[in-house]
């Protein structure tokens, strides 16, 4: 058997297993973001948004729609990998992969694609929910697709690293609760950073999520607080750093080999 066939079959097996996993438990994985985003659109978009008025030339509900879609993509790509990989560690069935002749990068890619698949599926569902509340005309499909894929790759890697270090179930909720959620909320989902005082505008630019939200908003609405090229550069750099670090963790066997 050729190496390429072995790797391709192993990779597709991990991806199928991951997609099977999150679709089997769709009530826990797909439905909740759809419901919570519907509430966001209803409360912040329709009820409060009508009193806020326009933002950068768009109704408030339309302005926050890309941010809310991106928030779902980030949360779900992260959650998929962190829960799946930690669950595999916890139940020890990660050993099925570790004893098999699969190189580390294939294991990592399999989990990433699983996270991207869930992120994109949830993003699509939330977009459909958003269309009940506002019309969305895509400004650039290329930018939208590129930033969705890159962002979900980045947060899948984040989830993977979290899962490697986690020792108990509490550990997989600490990062999403205390780091990810504040960064998302302060990452320009609900407002333009141009509304902030200068100091906080600069501070906001240290938040990587700002670049993803704004790039996606640019792809959908054509408006952004930051330079899109620079945003893609930042996202790509983060992906490379986290990818190399994840491979290093797998290579050293951190948390999975004695």
């Amino acid at each position: 058997m050729s190496r390429s066939r072995l790797y391709l079959t192993a990779f597709s097996t991990i991806v199928i297993k991951e997609v099977d996993r999150f679709t089997r438990i769709w009530v826990q994985t797909i439905l909740p973001p759809a419901i919570s985003m519907a509430l966001y659109f209803l409360i912040f978009g329709n009820l409060i948004g009508t009193r806020i008025g326009e933002m950068q030339g768009f109704s408030y509900v339309k302005y926050i729609a890309p941010g809310l879609i991106m928030m779902s993509i980030i949360n779900n790509s992260y959650a998929n990998v962190v829960s799946s990989f930690f669950g595999a560690k916890f139940q020890k069935h990660i050993e099925e992969m570790l004893v098999a002749p699969i190189p580390n990068f294939i294991i990592l890619l399999g989990y990433i694609v699983g996270g991207v698949a869930r992120g994109m599926l949830v993003g699509l569902v939330v977009t459909l929910v958003a269309l009940f509340f506002t019309k969305l005309h895509i400004h650039s499909y290329t930018i939208v697709i590129a930033v969705v894929i890159l962002t979900s790759i980045l947060f899948s890697l984040g989830g993977f690293i979290n899962a490697v270090f986690a020792r108990k179930f509490d550990d997989i909720s600490i990062i999403p609760t205390f780091i990810l959620t504040p960064l998302i909320y302060l990452g320009g989902v609900f407002y333009s950073i141009n509304l902030l005082p200068e100091f906080w505008q600069v501070a906001s630019k240290l938040n990587p999520i700002l670049y993803m939200v704004n790039t996606f908003r640019y792809g959908v609405l054509g408006v952004s607080d930051i330079n899109i090229g620079y945003a893609f550069f930042i996202i790509s750099v983060f992906i490379m750093i986290l990818f190399v670090f994840s491979l290093y963790l797998l290579h050293t066997g951190k948390g999975i080999r004695s």
């Binding site: 079959t9 297993k17 099977d20 595999a88 020890k92 098999a100």
Partner: peptide, 27 residues
């Protein structure tokens, strides 16, 4: 390898468990 402790996913069927393992070996 048949390990000492049960180490397959408790949520997968018997068929899924063996098919996945086959996939990891390129089958």
């Amino acid at each position: 390898i048949v390990p000492q402790e049960i180490n397959f996913s408790q949520f997968e069927t018997c068929m899924e468990i063996v098919l996945n393992q086959a996939g990891y070996y390129g089958i």
